[in-house]
């Protein structure tokens, strides 16, 4: 077993330290070391987007980032999105629009939508579809997801 490295990073605004093997992905670190299981593994090769998180303001597949690469960086995950007493508007919009069925892809879609709305607060339907094409959903046919993101943008 390779020697574990010490990493200090910021997750959802809090300074976090952890030990990880060089081969462990950020997704593994989040899920197995830090017990932040909101990011899901659907493919472990960047195809499905279920593990989407925001790294220094940029949307990434956490399965394609190594844990050690997050040293000194800032990670936003689904667990950090809601306020203690209220949901983020994107989360509300997903509930109002019934934009989830099984829910396994939902954290990834919400993080992806947040990254979109952070940089483009008023996207067109096409822009939403283009941006979310990196996230797979097998249940909904995407209709209600796209509507939820457009609604969240309008609500801002």
């Amino acid at each position: 077993m390779a020697r574990r490295s010490h990493v200090q990073t910021t997750i959802n605004g809090e300074t976090v330290e952890f030990l990880c093997e060089p081969r462990q992905s950020l997704l593994e670190v989040l899920r197995d070391e830090l017990h932040l299981t909101g990011a899901k593994e659907g493919c472990n090769n960047g195809n499905c987007g279920a593990c989407s998180v925001i790294l220094d303001g940029r949307l990434v597949n956490s399965c394609l980032v190594l844990g050690v690469e997050t040293e000194g960086k800032s990670v936003e995950t689904i667990e950090g999105l809601a306020e203690p007493d209220k949901l983020h508007p994107i989360q509300d919009a997903f509930l109002e629009n019934a934009a989830l069925q099984c829910g396994i892809c939902t954290p990834g879609f919400i993080m992806s939508a947040k990254a979109l709305l952070d940089q483009n607060p008023n996207p067109t339907e096409h822009e939403v579809r283009y941006w979310l094409a990196g996230n797979l959903c097998r249940c909904t046919g995407y209709d209600k997801i796209v509507r939820a993101v457009l609604d969240a943008a309008a609500a801002k």
Binding site: G38, F94, L95, L100
Partner: peptide, 8 residues
């Protein structure tokens, strides 16, 4: 719903 949009 809330559990599923918060990752919980």
């Amino acid at each position: 719903g809330v559990d599923k949009v918060t990752g919980r």
